[in-house]
Design a protein around this nucleic acid. Structure first.
Length: 209
DNA sequence: ATAATGATTCGCT
DNA sequence: GCGAATCATTATG
């Protein structure tokens, strides 16, 4: 890539900060870039959720449970955690925190910024609507992210990679909405935690259930 | 080896 | 608003 990309790309230190809740909020407005198949697509992060082991029952690594799948989350922050949900959808997470802490931030939605024609093509759509990228399962399709990318670094700007760049402009606090996480009702008292963050008044946010 | 279950989406009513 | 689709992962026998 070019010098601009490498100066804006977020370094491992950023992702290795200890609190996934802080990072989930801080990642709003930043740019998620993919360069698969020679196609560059860019989305502005508009909705996130924090998952924090060991105490968070909604986290796959609840109780620091290490399995073949969750092992990716125990890596040091700055890599991707991509897994299949409901047998159909691939969900993209950013692994955060130091090594051996299984924290992650689920990217639930982005606002298309560049490469929109590739996103439309990947989703087999003609027209740009919020449904193109508003939702964790559809966002990965639009950006071309698959499980093949599980465990890969998010800190290198190059071909066939994913990385995150600094926001072009700061997001003011008043523009950030907070709620409980979606789809984690079975997580007992953890279900009520206000760990979902989104850009207010942005159409590219999944609907609250 | 087998069975239950989900960090969802889409189409139909 | 409701329910089906669909399968990797996990726990259990």
């Amino acid at each position: 890539m070019n010098a601009t990309a490498s100066s804006l790309i977020l370094p491992p230190d950023y992702f290795q900060q200890p609190d996934p809740v802080f990072l989930a909020r801080d990642l709003l407005g930043k740019l998620l870039v993919t360069t698969f198949d020679g196609r560059r697509t860019v989305g502005r992060i508009s909705e996130t959720e924090a998952y924090k082991a060991p105490e968070d029952r909604a986290c796959h690594a609840y109780g620091n449970r290490r399995t073949a799948r969750t092992e990716t989350m125990f890596a040091a922050g700055g890599v991707a955690y991509v897994y299949l949900c409901y047998g159909i959808h691939e969900l993209f997470n950013v692994v955060t925190g130091p090594a051996d802490s299984a924290h992650a931030v689920l990217i639930r939605a982005v606002e298309p910024v560049a490469g929109i024609e590739w996103m439309l093509q990947r989703r087999a759509k003609e027209k740009l609507t919020p449904q193109l990228t508003a939702g964790p399962g559809v966002m990965t399709v639009a950006l071309g992210i698959t499980r093949a990318y599980d465990g890969q670094p998010l800190t290198e700007a190059k071909a066939d990679a994913v990385w995150i760049q600094e926001a072009t402009e700061a997001v003011p606090d008043q523009q950030i909405g907070v709620s409980s996480r979606i789809g984690v009702d079975s997580a007992g008292s953890c279900a009520a935690r206000p760990w979902r963050f989104f850009l207010r008044d942005n159409p590219y946010v999944s609907r609250k259930r």
